[in-house]
Design a protein around this nucleic acid. Structure first.
Length: 257
DNA sequence: ATGGTTGGAGCCCAA
């Protein structure tokens, strides 16, 4: 079983990169974030032609998630438990089951800036994810929580820790929120295979940081013990971040025995 | 360089 996560930064703008990438890697499951399209305009047919079943949860302009799978996609969830803001219409979550995996695909709010309203929304949102795990997931099963977390674990995930010290994506409250989520019984899949720092999944368009490998690791594979035990590899496909019209995120792939 | 680029909207917002 090969599962991938990719913040594509618009599925319609990225089709010419996504379709050949599916052909190259043939992942069993792909969790997409920032699809940026309403459900009836999602370009399903081109992806179905590659052999995928597709479930989407999108909105106009912003956010949006989807799961593609070469197997049946069951028990789909697209809502978090209600937070303090009951009018929350942001499409950022897709839970589902594929084969013997319980999958949760997340696009965690960016947070904008430490102390900003969006920052506190992000922290509250993470608590609601924890609540969803408690309600609908079993830590004794093969659980994979993946997506764009917009949070680094520690300074190994940061190309310039001084510049990012207590800044957005790297602050102590965000990292604590991530640790709290993992206390459900989840582990950082990539670190099973790679202890070294300098592995990134996102590079800023604005500073053209990719050419100097100035990035952050903010896209993750969190795994229950059973999923971690079955996991063969976790790796970042930097090649997909290079070349013409890339997303600002690279895909991350995990394989399981 | 407190800047810069990208995508989707619609004459700016979010990342």
């Amino acid at each position: 079983m090969k599962i991938a996560t990719w913040n594509v930064n618009s599925i319609r703008a990225r089709l010419s990169r996504v379709v050949p990438w599916l052909q190259e890697h043939s992942p069993d499951v792909v969790c997409l974030q920032e699809t940026k399209v309403v459900d009836d305009q999602f370009p399903k047919e081109l992806l179905e032609d590659q052999g995928y079943n597709i479930v989407v949860s999108g909105q106009k302009t912003y956010n949006g998630v989807a799961v593609l799978a070469q197997h049946q996609i069951e028990n789909v969830i697209t809502e978090l438990p209600d937070g303090s803001d009951a009018d929350d219409k942001e499409k950022r979550v897709m839970g589902c089951c594929v084969e013997d995996f319980m999958i949760l695909n997340l696009y965690v709010p960016n947070g904008r800036e430490v102390g900003h309203n969006h920052f506190y929304y992000k922290l509250e949102w993470m608590k609601r994810v924890r609540q969803l795990l408690e309600e609908s997931y079993d830590p004794d099963e093969k659980v994979v929580v993946t997506g764009d977390f917009n949070i680094t674990f520690d300074d190994r995930d940061v190309h310039d820790p001084e510049r990012y010290h207590e800044k957005i994506h790297c602050s102590t409250p965000e990292r604590d929120a991530l640790r709290d989520l993992m206390s459900f019984g989840l582990h950082d899949g990539l670190r099973k295979f790679h202890e070294e720092g300098g592995i990134y999944t996102w590079w800023d368009y604005k500073t053209r940081g990719f050419s100097r490998d100035e990035g952050l690791r903010i896209d993750h594979f969190l795994m229950s013990q059973k999923a971690l035990d079955a996991c063969d590899s976790v790796w970042v496909d930097k090649k997909a971040r290079d070349g013409k019209s890339p997303s600002d995120h690279a895909p991350v792939l995990a394989t399981f025995r």
